[in-house]
Amino acid sequence: MQQDSILHFFLILAAISTIVFVFVFFSSWQDDTNNEGVKNALRKRFWFILILLVSLGIFASVTIPKSPYFLFADEVPSKIIHVSAMQYAFLLSEKNIDAKNPVGESIILPSNRLVEFRVTSLDVNHGFAIYNSEMQLITQTQAMPGYVNSLRYKFDKPGKYQVLCLELCGVGHPVMQSTFKVQ
């Protein structure tokens, strides 16, 4: 899962940074009075910044095209699901949801086909986060009143999926959830 590799990546970087700092700290205890720090500090700094800049540049150019706004942009969704979030429920429906009389229905989605969720909110800001059957967050968008966010996703595994709210929306925030099936 993406989260696991993120955590490992982070822990490795954190460990490297800590080792560098600990090493630097102990170097200052050396009983060698002649030492007066780093020579050619400016040149070393230049290389350090250059390496940092290049690695961040590579990282950015690899990750930016994977942003959700660019994924599946050229495909035609096989199904549109309307989502209206409200305190404290998600209404999902294949038909449009009437703001004055909002009702949802149970949803079954096809696997390996592109689905588009059109997400909006009837009151405050909510999050629309999709969790798979192992309760791992797989994708999300925000539900903002007055706007419709179109979230596209292809579910590769059939099963039960849960929707949780990820934006504080009041005291019922943690119980706000919904489910749908993928076949």
Binding site: Q3, S17, L56, S67, L137, T139, L166
Partner: peptide
């Protein structure tokens, strides 16, 4: 520095999809 590393990872849009508000 370590908090900054966590921040830069989260400030990457494609990671943010699975980290935002977790």
């Amino acid at each position: 520095v370590i908090g900054g590393l966590g921040a830069v990872i989260d400030a990457t849009i494609s990671n943010n999809v699975v980290l935002h508000n977790t």
